[in-house]
């Protein structure tokens, strides 16, 4: 089985990321959050050549990467990933996935039924938040910002519909 991991981010200002940062800093008091970025992670699994699959997906559809507004990068592993930009503080990745991944399932149906890419057997969708944290415990802070098991202090993952994991970035 082959895997193709595609990280997609907006080239235009990301209002979702801006609102998340506003909520975390201004409403929830996480003053150690210096910056925040958001990327979508599409993971395609199946019996295919990843290089050719990537070229095919980029050529045949703008559903995953719309060149008018998206930048993308292919990654082999999330661990040790380079953040999308440099900023003050320590970057910590928070990968948020749905417990019921309808976006992934719908994308799989689209790939197979509309594009005819039957060699793809699974698609998953997650959000990778990159938090630049200036405090002394970046991972602890990131965990607090992610875990929305109560109204305060977390935001990024409601445990009743989402799971999150921290990702080491370099």
């Amino acid at each position: 089985m082959a895997e193709l991991d595609l990280l997609v981010r907006l080239k235009v200002p990301d209002t979702v990321a801006a609102s998340a940062r506003f909520a975390l800093v201004e409403l929830l008091g996480h003053a150690d959050l210096a910056a925040l970025d958001r990327e979508e992670l599409w993971r395609f699994t199946g019996s295919f050549d990843p290089d050719r699959m990537l070229l095919g997906l980029l050529r045949r559809t703008s559903r995953f990467v719309n060149p008018s507004k998206h930048a993308h990068r292919r990654v082999s592993s999330l661990a040790g990933l380079t953040p999308p930009r440099e900023f003050e503080g320590t970057p910590v990745g928070v990968l948020v996935s749905k417990r019921d991944d309808f976006a992934g399932r719908n994308a799989l149906a689209y790939c197979r039924d509309t594009l005819g890419l039957t060699e793809i057997s699974a698609v998953s969708y997650s959000t990778l938040w990159t938090l630049w944290i200036t405090g002394s415990d970046p991972e602890g802070s990131a965990r607090k910002m992610a875990d929305c098991s109560a109204r305060r202090p977390g935001l990024l993952a409601n445990p009743h519909c989402e799971v999150f994991e921290l990702v080491n970035l370099v």
């Binding site: 019921d100 309808f102 719908n106 098991s149 109204r151 445990p159 009743h160």
Partner: peptide, 25 residues
Amino acid sequence: LEAGLVPGLAAGHPLEMALDSNAHG
């Protein structure tokens, strides 16, 4: 639900449920 007021079983309003994406969009 995001404020923890519903279903409101436990004291202190922890989040106990979610209103997640529809199965069919």
